[in-house]
Amino acid sequence: MLWNTGLWNTGTRNTGSWDTELTRRLGLRLPVVQGPLGGGLSSVALVGAVADAGGLGSFGVHHLAPQALLDTAALLRARTSAPFALNLWMPCAYRQQKHIEPVQFARTLELLAPFYDELGLALPEAPPAAWPDEREQMEALLEARPAVFSFVFGIPPDDVLRRCRQLGILTLGAATTVAEARALEAAGVDMLVASGAEAGGHRVAFLEPPERGLIGLFALLPQVVDAVQIPVIGAGGIADGRGMAAALLLGAQGVQLGTAFLACEESAASAVQRASLFQPQASDTVLTRVFSGRLARGIHNEFVERLQTVEHSLPGYPLLNSLTAELKRAAVARQRPELMSLWSGQSAGLLRHRNAGAVLAALEGQAQALLGRL
């Protein structure tokens, strides 16, 4: 579907609306999802700015305890009456490690000690406290009742999906392979994000180790569209209207952008992290486990370089993520980007804008012009 034949309906070039399954189901003006930035990088301001411009704002709440999740939902509702998504991480067997033996804990501290010392921090004396319980988080999310429950690293239990349908909560999963897309559809998930290997942050594979599903978006997307009947949203390496137009032409009902919104002044990323996305070195990204214990894409820096040869000796997520959390906070406070987790997709070289409204306006204008030519 092209200009004036389905994707875009307008009486004039400036007052129309996009017409896709995503926009229809949620009453959006634009078929654009703001990627759910995890680990405290989401913000109420960013979700609100995206909503104001007609897209779907998303808030990553996987690190929040149930009451904090409910409080966040209340803040979002106070900021916007538009639909928004709350995003959780499902339990995933790959690199999942919540307990650690004393010998491995000591070895891990030995590997991380130079960074603690360099940042003037004391080594932890014991493993970190337990991560929030995923089932309790899901119960809180159902109570919060967002328009969209988005999730990664798996599929929620059947009873949770059933209750989402009863409450009118649209469910949005993430797939890195055709097999994962089929599994999401078979479970009754409403829509899915096809996440290409270009995407920044964690690889959200759940049926196989993530290395088995490093498929570029424009190879993955049409295969997923052909394999399932539910609407598909394209993600990974999209940062301008060219990527948006291409994804829509390949059958996507919308696009999801992460890095482009992470770089915006409304995100909760530090000024140092946002600035790093506009530097030449942002084009040099790497897939690494050294920050969290799970494979993720970020800008190659000194922290990655010094630990990459021992990354498989480090514990899995969420243990390693907890052990590096204080390091990452200290690196931000001391403005040491070489020691920060600088999550970024392979599209950073395309970034031009530093606020969400400008990102969406440019995205829409360029995609509209390209589709109009066809």
Rank of each mutant, 00 (worst) to 15 (best):
T285P: 09
A269S: 12
L287S: 03
R297G: 01
Q273H: 15
S276D: 02
R294D: 04
H312L: 14
I299F: 09
R306Y: 11
G293P: 09
V290S: 03
V304D: 07
Q279T: 09
T288R: 04
L295Q: 10
A282Q: 00
V304H: 12
V310Y: 11
L287G: 00
V304M: 07
R274W: 03
L277H: 04
A282D: 02
H300D: 15
V272T: 15
S313D: 14
D284T: 06
R289H: 12
G293W: 07
Q273L: 12
S313T: 14
V304C: 11
L277Q: 03
L314P: 05
A268I: 08
T285A: 10
I299L: 12
L277N: 00
S313G: 01
V272E: 13
L295P: 02
V304P: 03
A282C: 09
G316H: 06
I299G: 06
A271L: 13
F303Q: 10
F303A: 10
N301P: 13
L295H: 06
R306E: 14
P315I: 11
V286F: 05
A268C: 09
E305Q: 13
R297M: 01
R274H: 04
P315S: 12
R274K: 15
A275P: 02
R289L: 08
A296S: 08
A269Y: 09
N301E: 15
R289Q: 11
E305W: 06
Q273F: 08
L277K: 00
F278L: 00
A275T: 01
T285I: 10
R294S: 05
S292V: 07
L277D: 00
R306G: 10
R306D: 10
A296C: 01
F303S: 08
S313Q: 15
P315V: 11
Q308P: 01
A268V: 08
D284Y: 03
T309R: 13
T309A: 14
A269Q: 10
L287I: 12
Q308H: 07
H300P: 00
R306T: 10
S267F: 13
T285G: 10
F291Q: 09
E305R: 15
L307W: 10
A268F: 08
R306W: 11
T288G: 04
E305N: 11
Q308W: 04
V290G: 01
V310M: 06
S267T: 13
T285L: 10
T288V: 06
R274G: 02
G293S: 10
